[in-house]
Design a protein around this nucleic acid. Structure first.
Lengths: 222, 222
DNA sequence: CACTCTCAGATTGTTACACAATCTGAGAGT
DNA sequence: ACTCTCAGATTGTGTAACAATCTGAGAGTG
């Protein structure tokens, strides 16, 4: 049982630490704007400062933290403009994805295309039923639904970039008191899946704009 | 004259090194797939391995190199699928940008909107006139034209993401023998600027698809 | 009192060296 | 030809130290 050869190498310390920090940030355990000190993380995690630095740079590339030279890392923060810009980008990708799927499959998508989306919807429903007040988890499941819609376009870069964007959105969402009942969210997205097939891109824009308005309202009432 | 206070701190070593490497990659001095060894860069640049590592991770975040654990960094490489995926993403962003500008300004954009685009076109024309065979420079100027078009949407995230994508495109382009005469490129893009105003998103898709076809052809004839 | 200036302490940026973990290719053995 | 093994190359991580820069508290000034 000695270190057998050619085994997949475990994830590096940097990757594990980045996972931990990402999870903390997305669970709202670290408020936006909070400085993240290298030494603190190093002593807490038992890793060296170099490793911590690498992990923080990784998160910076994902925009979950911002890093300024000699001033360290902070949990990312969104103002109104930043959120709107993010949503515009999100809309661009989701629109294009829906356009691509409709170009290929028309206004009624075949089962193998909607299958993954439906599963994500089921997971969302389950999450909402299990614990409607576990907002981080509901928000995550919601993000998965949209991600699966984009993934249906089978365009890897579209999918990947969109996932990353929606992770940023999660960071915004966990710090907002949800205006929505979780069940309403499920129903709305089952309808959304129908609309993007029949109506197409405009349904996407309406959905995203609606979300943007809700979030801006919640942000204003911070 | 001692270190006066509150002066902007110079760019860090990591940033400078990343700039150098990025420039080399985008000038085609390093072929795609080439391994980039930490020690080599360290001894060449006189910087420490840690610094080199940080710079390489930065370039990896920009997708100019790929990094695999314990296997190091390589100059990024594009296959057919990768290029198509990249172009789909590019099309999504440029379409949305054009849509946003047209939603705001209709089919004839005001001077302050097209001004920066026209300047980029002029720079492209100058580059093409100065040295039509300096393909990296012409390609760069061409990328600037498209970036300015997207920037006209005044959506920071759209702009930034698009710029990054087009930088990747540059990496592909510098390694292709151009099929185009540089002058034709200028004329075509002056026409393109008119078309995106009058026709809109479909002109974008046509343009991008045309480019994709050309590049795929050139890639196949590698 | 408001304001600026200064400076010590905190924090990040970088280096050097060491060692552990993993990959790689060349050669031994079948 | 094929697999297996292993030494060398390369990357991942740690420790320690110092340089560069930021920060906030307090001194000095009007």
């Amino acid at each position: 049982m000695s270190p057998s050869p050619r085994e997949t190498p475990g994830p590096t310390s940097v990757a594990r630490l980045a996972d931990t920090l990402r999870a903390q940030i997305l669970h709202g355990e670290l408020a936006p704007g909070t400085p993240v000190r290298e030494e603190d993380i190093a002593s807490m995690s038992g890793l060296s400062r170099h490793t911590v630095r690498s992990a923080l740079r990784l998160l910076a590339a994902e925009r979950l933290v911002t890093v300024e030279p000699y001033r360290g890392a902070r949990v990312a923060q969104f103002d109104t403009d930043g959120l709107v810009a993010l949503q515009q980008l999100r809309a661009a990708l989701e629109c294009e994805a829906v356009r691509l799927v409709r170009a290929r499959h028309g206004t009624t998508w075949p089962p193998d295309v909607v299958h993954q989306i439906l599963e994500a919807l089921d997971r969302l429903e389950r999450a909402a039923a299990t614990d409607p007040d576990d907002w981080p988890e509901v928000a995550r499941a919601h993000a998965e639904v949209h991600s699966e819609i984009v993934a249906a376009a089978r365009s890897p870069r579209l999918t990947e970039t969109y996932r990353s964007l929606h992770t940023e959105m999660l960071l915004v969402l966990v710090h907002l008191r949800p205006r929505y009942r979780a069940e309403a969210l499920v129903a709305e997205h089952r309808g959304y899946l129908r609309l993007i097939q029949s109506v197409g891109e405009d349904a996407v824009r309406a959905h995203v704009d609606h979300a943007t308005a809700l979030i801006l309202g919640a942000l204003a009432a911070d």
